[in-house]
């Protein structure tokens, strides 16, 4: 149902770095699970409307009002890495662009 190459592709889409062991295990397990899903094809659903949520509700909106947030420092401090520069406060991540132009 699903081969190892597809498992690698899905892992990339999900941003998961899998070990060879995990790749192998997931290939078997996902195949079993997808096969289990096959029973749904017994049901004719051509004329059936999909249900996205169980209890019907119209769209809920609110005015987009600016509100000051008091725990700004707490939020910045939750980050694994941060940096403050003259431009402001930032969440810091590893280099995004390659070394060209440096």
């Amino acid at each position: 149902m699903i081969d190892r190459e597809q498992v690698r592709k899905v892992a990339h889409l999900a941003r998961l770095d899998l070990t060879p062991d995990e790749e192998e295990k997931f290939t078997t397990q996902l195949s079993d699970i997808l096969e289990y899903f096959e029973q749904l094809s017994e049901l004719d659903t051509d004329e059936v409307q999909p249900t996205a949520r169980a209890i019907d509700m119209s769209n809920v909106t609110r005015p987009d009002r600016l509100q000051p947030y008091e725990n700004r420092e707490t939020i910045l401090n939750s980050a694994p890495d941060r940096e403050s520069t003259a431009q402001g406060d930032f969440f810091k991540v590893p280099q995004i662009l390659s070394g060209e132009g440096e």
């Binding site: 899905v10 997931f26 996902l30 749904l40 094809s41 659903t45 999909p50």
Partner: peptide, 29 residues
Amino acid sequence: KRRIMIGTYTLSAGYYDAYYLKAQKVRTL
């Protein structure tokens, strides 16, 4: 990880109708 893998697969291009949409219709039933 297993569930993220299943979900990413069932939502991915080419499989959405066969899995996610189908499941939402069965949900109606």
